[in-house]
Amino acid sequence: MLIGVPKEIKNHEYRIGLTPAGARELINHGHRVMVQRDGGKLIGLTDEAYRKVGAEIVETPAEIFERAEMIIKVKEPQPEECRMLREGQLLFTYLHLAPDPEQTRLLVESGCTAVAYETVTDGNGGLPLLAPMSEVAGRMSIQAGAHALERAQGGAGILLGGVPGVPPAEVVVLGGGVVGLNAARMAMGLEANVSILDRSLPRLKYIDELYGDRMNTVYSTTEAIDALLPRAALVVGAVLLPGTAAPKLIRREQLGLMQPGSVIADVAIDQGGCFETSRPTTHQDPTFEVDGVVHYCVANMPGAVARTSTFALTNATLPFAVALADKGARRALLDDEHLREGLNVHAGKITYRAVAEGLGYEYVPAVTALGG
């Protein structure tokens, strides 16, 4: 199979879909890999490194989309990329379709087969291709939130960990999954006071057993959130419902409970965000203010630490990419129920229920669409 890796074009996105080691693995399996010139240059993955393992370097994304049988990316295809996709072509990347009707329409119209990293599952009910970026984004949310709390950035001028004689800040994390737990761990490491909220009692018990009284576990209700907001310097939105839009956990009127200059970091912004006042921002212009509260809503947070993120992502995606290339998309998807959960669009049909229901498309089960 001929596999193409284009350079990412989203604002301040420096990740690349495949490392040289990943390219070498696919080439060792008898496939061909072509990478767009300078696709990984800014994170130290040079064209020479790709050439050394046998990959072809091409000049333009148009050539990649025209020739490749499978496209491996990081972020969702931008409109101009969607328009280059063709019938029968395989796209393997993050999609986050639920809050993005335009991308969904363009993928349907293209006739391509689109497999989304974020909905591939594993035997434990986890999301193995979302997990590494969730770990990065969770940790970054505290780093970014701490920066946004600085007075020069519009924040209240609060140091998360305080200093002797000055109490630490209160950090509230909404969601106890991979993002939330990584955020809470980082905040705890900076010596902030941390509360983590979730609606799964087994998850709260697990977190409590790990950290005891170093982290406050709270069953998530509107009342519990209202009680914590007046004290919170930083609130992290870390709630995920696979494949569908994130629930709005904090409404605009609740911002009035927060102190001026406090910060919210919405890690769920890829799925529409879990704050009513959230809207996507970029690394170039990462924050905005609503009712005195600073909002950090960068939609590709891991892109800021692109080298770490690229290696972590390839580690997770490579076995699935190899399976898709070795067997072909149809056979690989029919053979592996967990990979099949990643199929969102195939030959003009929506094959992921939450996307179909959320955007008003007819839902066609993946096995039916594949003719299995």
Results as ranks from 00 to 15, higher is better:
residue 41 K to G: 11
residue 52 K to R: 13
residue 24 R to P: 08
residue 316 A to P: 04
residue 225 I to A: 03
residue 113 T to G: 06
residue 20 P to E: 08
residue 177 G to H: 01
residue 354 A to E: 12
residue 87 E to I: 02
residue 44 G to L: 00
residue 66 E to T: 12
residue 352 Y to L: 12
residue 285 D to M: 15
residue 18 L to M: 14
residue 160 L to A: 01
residue 84 M to G: 02
residue 74 V to H: 02
residue 330 R to L: 11
residue 133 M to Q: 10
residue 1 M to N: 05
residue 161 G to C: 04
residue 322 V to A: 13
residue 339 L to D: 04
residue 320 F to A: 10
residue 272 G to M: 07
residue 178 V to T: 15
residue 161 G to P: 01
residue 272 G to I: 01
residue 57 I to H: 07
residue 236 V to Y: 08
residue 16 I to Q: 03
residue 113 T to D: 04
residue 21 A to K: 14
residue 77 P to V: 07
residue 23 A to K: 03
residue 342 G to P: 02
residue 338 H to S: 05
residue 347 A to E: 11
residue 311 F to W: 10
residue 78 Q to N: 12
residue 248 K to S: 00
residue 328 G to V: 01
residue 345 V to D: 02
residue 144 A to T: 13
residue 338 H to D: 09
residue 13 E to K: 06
residue 71 I to M: 10
residue 20 P to C: 12
residue 89 Q to R: 03
residue 59 E to Q: 13
residue 23 A to F: 09
residue 264 I to A: 13
residue 184 A to D: 02
residue 301 M to A: 12
residue 231 R to S: 11
residue 82 C to D: 11
residue 96 H to Q: 03
residue 251 R to N: 14
residue 150 E to Y: 13
residue 108 V to M: 09
residue 11 N to Q: 11
residue 253 E to Q: 15
residue 81 E to Q: 08
residue 79 P to R: 08
residue 161 G to S: 04
residue 110 S to I: 00
residue 303 G to Y: 00
residue 233 A to Q: 13
residue 8 E to G: 05
residue 166 V to D: 08
residue 92 F to K: 01
residue 47 D to H: 00
residue 333 L to C: 02
residue 181 L to A: 08
residue 100 D to T: 10
residue 201 L to A: 12
residue 362 E to V: 15
residue 321 A to Q: 05
residue 206 Y to M: 15
residue 302 P to S: 07
residue 95 L to I: 05
residue 293 V to W: 01
residue 123 G to L: 10
residue 295 H to N: 10
residue 45 L to V: 01
residue 67 R to C: 10
residue 361 Y to G: 06
residue 128 P to T: 02
residue 13 E to A: 01
residue 170 E to V: 06
residue 227 A to C: 03
residue 138 G to R: 00
residue 132 P to H: 04
residue 107 L to I: 01
residue 66 E to N: 15
residue 267 V to P: 07
residue 202 P to D: 09
residue 306 A to Q: 05
residue 64 I to S: 03
residue 118 E to W: 03
residue 311 F to Q: 07
residue 352 Y to P: 02
residue 28 N to K: 15
residue 45 L to S: 02
residue 56 E to R: 12
residue 80 E to G: 11
residue 349 K to V: 08
residue 351 T to M: 02
residue 19 T to I: 07
residue 281 T to P: 01
